[in-house]
Computed example of a mutant assay.
Amino acid sequence: MDAEAVRFDRVTKRFGDHTVLDGLDLTVGRGERVTLIGPSGSGKTTILRLLMTLERVTEGVIHVGGEPFSHMPGAGAGGLVPASERYLADRRRGIGMVFQHFNLFPHMSVLENVVEAPVHVLKEGREEAAERARALLGMVGLADKVDARPTRLSGGQQQRVAIARALAMRPEILLLDEVTSALDPELVAEVLDVLRDVARDTDITLLCVTHEMGFARDVSDRILMFDQGRIVESGRAGELLDAPRHERTRAFLSAVR
């Protein structure tokens, strides 16, 4: 981790009178694996949505790869102005996300779902994109499902396709938003095993929101406990999970275990 991947500098996000993130300072190093935990509504998913440009900051600045992300150079405070859509579209190409729901194209095969974005967004040749897609589908254990339609797959298989699709975009940063919450309990393990492999075998920066504490322990360099839009505790995975210092962290962990 010789450089920062993501930095939130006094970032606040409000929806009307409701403050979801409250002056957040957060730095994630390149190649670091950070898990965000905390109750619903504490701001965790908002962090991911800001990085996917699904939301805009109210105050503060987000940097990605050492460069302004939420803002761009201009005649504003600190020489920055809010980023244009074109600027954002260019910057977010290095960020991938796997959502709670798979959002696969039902009319396309599994292979076509993985190939579509690299061809149209990254402008890869279709043959090159298909070759990489097959390799990624093999990595997530779906080499024999390349011609299947998503509707013929289990929920766990569909989420593994979604992981392959995100990796096909060659992200430097991968965001994981409660990726097992929509799955039946018996399907959770197969998805988490794939993500453990991603954490072990790649140098992608991971920013993960999950209630799966065993997974968080396995993959995280650091865990952050959120409550009411603020970080209440931060520490190495084993230390925070085994000996939390803050009463709010202890209460949350007791509730989810």
Rank of each mutant, 00 (worst) to 15 (best):
G125D: 15
I163K: 01
M52T: 12
A135D: 14
G66S: 04
E247S: 09
V110K: 06
A117W: 08
R160F: 00
L206R: 13
H211A: 05
K13Q: 10
P82W: 12
F99W: 14
V34M: 02
G23H: 07
G125W: 11
A255I: 11
T19V: 15
A216H: 01
M213P: 09
V81A: 05
R248W: 07
L240E: 09
I37S: 09
G29N: 12
D144C: 13
G238Q: 09
G125V: 15
D22S: 03
V110I: 13
V114A: 13
L175T: 06
V219G: 05
G38Y: 05
L153A: 09
R217A: 08
P150M: 12
R230E: 09
A130C: 00
V179I: 11
D201N: 06
M97G: 00
E247C: 02
T35C: 08
D2L: 07
L195E: 00
V209L: 09
V121M: 11
H63R: 08
P118W: 10
V179P: 14
A237G: 10
G60M: 01
G141S: 11
V146A: 01
L51D: 01
T46F: 05
I95K: 02
M169G: 15
E85Q: 12
D22R: 14
T12R: 13
T19H: 05
G96R: 07
R149N: 05
D9H: 03
R200D: 06
P171T: 02
A129T: 04
A189L: 09
D193R: 15
A182P: 10
G16T: 08
R230G: 08
G38K: 10
V6L: 08
P73Q: 14
L192S: 00
E67P: 00
L111G: 01
V6R: 00
V57A: 11
S154G: 06
D2F: 03
V146H: 03
D197P: 00
R92F: 12
S40R: 10
V219T: 00
R236S: 09
D197H: 03
T58Q: 04
E67S: 14
K13V: 13
L206C: 04
G76F: 13
A189M: 07
N103Y: 15
A5S: 15
T205V: 07
M97L: 07
R245H: 10
V219C: 07
V121S: 14
T58A: 08
E32M: 02
M1W: 04
D17C: 02
R196A: 13
A148L: 07
E247I: 06
K145V: 02
G41E: 07
A189Q: 15
F69I: 04
G214S: 15
T180H: 01
I204L: 03
F99A: 07
M72V: 10
R49V: 02
V209Y: 11
V98W: 03
C208W: 02
V146R: 02
R92H: 09
M97W: 08
L21P: 04
T12E: 12
